[in-house]
């Protein structure tokens, strides 16, 4: 049986997590739900099996039920610890990559600033541009809840993740709530970024084409001017020759 949070004022996060996050997470929560159901069914079947037998048998059956529950909970905790560690490591790696992107962009922003000054373009553009880039860098900030800088924080974060599926504790419930929000938000933002990148690349292409057209026009104008100059020179030369003759 799936242990949904019993509190009445809480949204049914257990159900939401099954439907709103990744297929992997969906499979995971599904497996957990199935596992808990089967452990519960085992307890019911075991009690029915020993029935109204002697007290000794019933006591032993209860001990076996307790062992099964204990083994299952222990195994779940270990699996969650491993999962928490993977998420933590992946989150840290993501954070580093975004930091590197930010550092690379920093120099380029300075280059744009210089170009704007040279061209006499208003300084507002640089700050707007910088804000735009900063927003990109801040997008994965939600993962800060899952990343940890220090080793002890990392272990604490993993422990929290490991027990996160016990909704009785407020703090643990909060971790679960955050975890359930991180994935769909990240997924959505990832798509937003891809769309923005596509739009910008399209803009680059349009601007390149416009520049090309402008330069072609100039080249054509130069050719026309050159031809006109040559014609004029030829006309002058002819006139001079005629006049000399």
């Amino acid at each position: 049986m799936t242990e949904a949070p019993p509190q009445v004022n809480r949204p049914n996060i257990w159900e939401r997590m099954k439907t709103s996050v990744s297929s992997g997470w969906e499979k995971f929560t599904g497996a957990l739900g199935r596992g808990r159901d089967r452990v519960q069914d085992f307890a019911v079947e075991a009690r029915a099996f020993v029935g109204a037998g002697v007290q000794g048998i019933r006591d032993r059956a209860e001990a076996v039920i307790g062992e099964v529950k204990g083994d299952f909970d222990g195994g779940v905790k270990q699996t969650l610890r491993n999962l928490g560690e993977t998420v933590s490591v992946a989150g840290k790696s993501l954070w580093e990559r975004v930091k590197t992107i930010g550092e690379r962009v920093k120099d380029k922003v300075e280059g744009v600033k210089t170009r704007c000054q040279e061209l006499g373009v208003g300084p507002g553009l640089v700050s707007k541009f910088r804000d735009g880039i900063d927003r990109v860098r801040q997008l994965p900030a939600d993962i800060s809840v899952l990343r940890a800088q220090k080793e002890d924080e990392k272990i604490a974060a993993m422990d929290k993740t490991a027990v996160a599926l016990n909704p009785d504790n407020e703090e643990e419930y909060e971790v679960l709530r955050r975890f359930s929000r991180v994935y769909p938000q990240m997924n959505e933002r990832c798509t937003q970024l891809q769309n923005r990148a596509q739009k910008l690349y399209q803009r680059v292409e349009t601007a390149r084409k416009a520049k090309h057209d402008l330069e072609n026009e100039r080249a054509d104008a130069r050719k026309v001017k050159k031809l006109a100059d040559e014609a004029s020179k030829a006309k002058y030369k002819a006139a001079t020759t005629l006049s000399a003759a």
Partner: peptide
């Protein structure tokens, strides 16, 4: 610059997910 930053960040987030 912005397109590259968006693309790279999006790729990093995609890998994380």
């Amino acid at each position: 610059i912005e397109a590259d930053a968006c693309e790279q960040t999006s790729q990093a987030m995609g890998d994380f997910l």
